[in-house]
């Protein structure tokens, strides 16, 4: 007996898949191919002009110091957002998971930033960190007599965007970690406790390894979030600025695609950048599948 159910009629199987294939083809594969084609043209969407330039736009990008700076900034940003996002998410999940009164209330409150739209979150932070009238500087001025210009200083602006991005996504990480913590097999922790493991040892050697599948999953979700979904937050909070060196310190790869493609209407040039990003994301995906095989999902 074969345990896997098989469609007797191959065509029926295809028919069932058809809606998905049509949607994928129309909204994913066709645009992707079109992007690939456009990357070889100097194209302007509005004028509908296209001149074949071969790989010139890729060459232009790969010899552009501003592009490398943007790439480096993106890598640092992603690393920080993913690491801090997971660390804070897990710490808060553990705290919110303690058997205390009103734990459910804390958990819901902690989830709340995730429910905000990025546009609202961006506007909120923008006004909180307004140097003259913002809440944060009002407090700092009263307590320490300082009032930094948050979005003007490259280091501060970068840090601010990192924390805004982490804060915005904390609810998501918290939700997954909370669910995972609640499903941990209690007997293992109990056995460890009986064997005399300290709370830290119980966390380090029992809880953390047991959480690894969820950590693995969240790692890639957060990475995708940092690369693509932080766009609107950046747009509203810093608009890619402030300038440091060759480009804005928060001009990440995705933001540059937006600037060139939709503000400067250099459709072909933006397409070339999209292709480079596709290659990078492709690399990460391969990595995910490779490492994924080794992750222990438990029995």
């Amino acid at each position: 007996m074969n345990a896997i159910a098989v469609f007797k009629n191959r065509w029926l199987a295809f028919l069932m898949l058809l809606p998905t294939l049509v949607v994928l083809g129309l909204f994913l594969y066709y645009p992707a191919l079109e992007t690939l084609r456009l990357s070889l043209y100097r194209a302007n969407f509005v004028f509908q002009t296209e001149t074949f330039v071969g790989l010139a736009q890729f060459q232009q990008l790969l010899t552009d110091p501003a592009y490398y700076q943007s790439l480096l900034q993106t890598v640092i940003f992603c690393a920080l957002v993913v690491f801090l996002g997971l660390a804070f998410g897990l710490s808060l999940a553990i705290l919110a998971n303690q058997p205390i009164h009103g734990a459910a209330v804390y958990r819901s409150l902690l989830l709340y930033p995730y429910a905000l739209s990025p546009a609202i979150a961006g506007t909120l932070w923008l006004f909180m960190f307004n140097p003259e009238v913002g809440l944060v500087n009002n407090i700092l001025r009263t307590l320490f007599g300082i009032a930094p210009r948050w979005l003007d200083n490259p280091i501060l602006a970068f840090t601010l965007v990192v924390f805004a991005a982490v804060w915005k996504n904390i609810g998501y990480n918290l939700a997954f970690y909370t669910a995972a913590l609640q499903n941990l097999p209690g007997e293992l922790l109990e056995a460890a406790a009986l064997d005399g493991a300290t709370p830290w040892q119980r966390f380090r050697y029992v809880t953390l390894p047991l959480l690894s599948p969820i950590t693995f999953f969240l790692f890639f979700v957060n990475l995708t979030y940092a690369v693509f979904d932080t766009f609107s937050l950046v747009d509203i909070l810093t608009a890619g600025g402030p300038t440091l060196g060759k480009t804005g310190i928060t001009t990440f790869l995705i933001y540059r695609v937006y600037q060139d493609g939709f503000q400067n209407f250099q459709t072909g040039f933006a397409a070339a950048q999209a292709i480079l990003m596709l290659i990078m994301v492709g690399g990460i995906t391969v990595l995910q599948f490779r490492v994924g095989r080794r992750v222990n999902y438990g029995a």
Binding site: L126, F127, E132, D152, L237, G241
Partner: peptide, 21 residues
């Protein structure tokens, strides 16, 4: 003084209407 964000019309208006400049 300004907020640091380019073309931040609202942010600068807020600074003025709050009598901070």
């Amino acid at each position: 003084t300004y907020t640091g964000k380019l073309e931040d019309w609202d942010g600068s208006d807020a600074i003025f209407t709050d009598a901070k400049v």
